[in-house]
């Protein structure tokens, strides 16, 4: 180095300071809103109105009133969220089971078998993402209203399956292509049928990918809002947690209740995600490395 403070040294020194600051900034903007949500859900509403800027709460001030109000059934003056939790769980689990069953077969076919129209399948899938959900919502809303089935939970399962199938087939296909074909050919020589090969060879090897895909679908179904709003809003017993929280916004609902509902909506997803983060992000970005 000829000079002590050339451009190189300045940039390196600046980065040494800016990098930790930047990381701290990003952690702050991602964590703080969630912290704030939990904080408000356990505070007393009068204290929040009094000092909205305070972001710590004494242990003595903790209050679980908001949670009680949100979870209690409507007959006891609550918002009935236990029921909504059950609905969301059934809806998401049902979507996962059906989507996986259908997409495993589809992904296997696309990755292993040469058949007429194999390439056309991709264009079919592209269409799901190109068309706005709100565009699909109109004809589905009209059709299910016409059939008198609009408020049913199982109808929503079918809608969600259609929305998640393409991404599932894509994720699973990427994984199946990493399973060596030779294993399957060995089984075939031994006389196994196609279904036996899928069940006994391919599926056990693909368990991590299937788990990741299943979790992904669960999250999409649990978080979904538009179709739940359009299809279920007049059918309160069938509300999902997302829809329940979104309907808490009338004037007399305190912010603490709203935040308690949001915590109940968010916690299952964050727990699932932290538990399986690696599994899921790898499944999604596989292939991105190639550019």
């Amino acid at each position: 180095m000829r000079r002590r403070w050339n451009r190189y040294a300045i940039e390196v020194a600046a980065l040494r300071v800016l990098r930790p600051l930047g990381i701290a900034f990003f952690v702050l903007i991602t964590v703080f809103p969630f912290y704030y949500m939990v904080l408000l859900s356990v505070r007393d509403i009068s204290e929040i109105i009094e000092s909205p800027g305070s972001i710590i709460v004494g242990l003595g001030e903790l209050s679980t009133d908001a949670y009680e109000r949100v979870l209690k059934p409507t007959s006891e003056g609550g918002e009935g969220f236990l029921r909504f939790l059950l609905n969301s769980l059934l809806l998401a689990a049902g979507t996962v089971v059906v989507t996986l069953l259908v997409s495993i077969l589809g992904a296997y076919a696309v990755s292993r078998l040469e058949f007429f129209g194999r390439r056309a399948v991709h264009f079919l899938f592209l269409s799901v993402y190109l068309f706005p959900a709100i565009l699909l919502a109109i004809p589905l809303f009209v059709a299910f209203s016409k059939m008198g089935l609009r408020g049913e939970l199982w109808v929503l399962v079918i809608v969600y399956v259609a929305q998640t199938l393409p991404i599932c087939v894509y994720m699973l296909r990427n994984y199946f292509e990493t399973v060596p074909v030779s294993l399957e050919e060995a089984a075939e020589v031994d006389g196994a049928t196609r279904m036996q090969i899928i069940r006994k060879i391919t599926l056990p090897l693909a368990i991590p990918a299937i788990a990741a895909t299943g979790l992904f679908v669960f999250m999409i179904a649990w978080n979904e809002f538009l179709f739940a709003l359009l299809f279920l809003v007049e059918e309160r017993p069938n509300w999902t947690v997302s829809l329940g929280v979104s309907q808490l916004t009338n004037i007399e609902t305190p912010a603490t209740t709203l935040m308690a509902g949001s915590v109940i909506l968010t916690v299952p997803i964050i727990v699932l995600f932290l538990f399986a983060e690696r599994l899921m992000t790898e499944g999604l970005t596989r292939g991105a490395e190639k550019g």
Binding site: L101, V102, S103, L105, G106, Y108, A109, V110, R112, L113, E114, F115, F116, G117, R118, V121, L124, F125, S127, V128, F131, L135, L136, P139, L140, A143, I158, V159, V161, A162, L165, P166, V169, R194
Partner: peptide
């Protein structure tokens, strides 16, 4: 034949719930 059979549930769901509605 196997390929078409295995992919048909996927295609049917997408056609009935996406393509026809559009």
């Amino acid at each position: 034949r196997a390929g078409l059979a295995l992919v048909s549930p996927t295609v049917i769901v997408v056609v009935v719930m996406v393509v026809l509605p559009v």
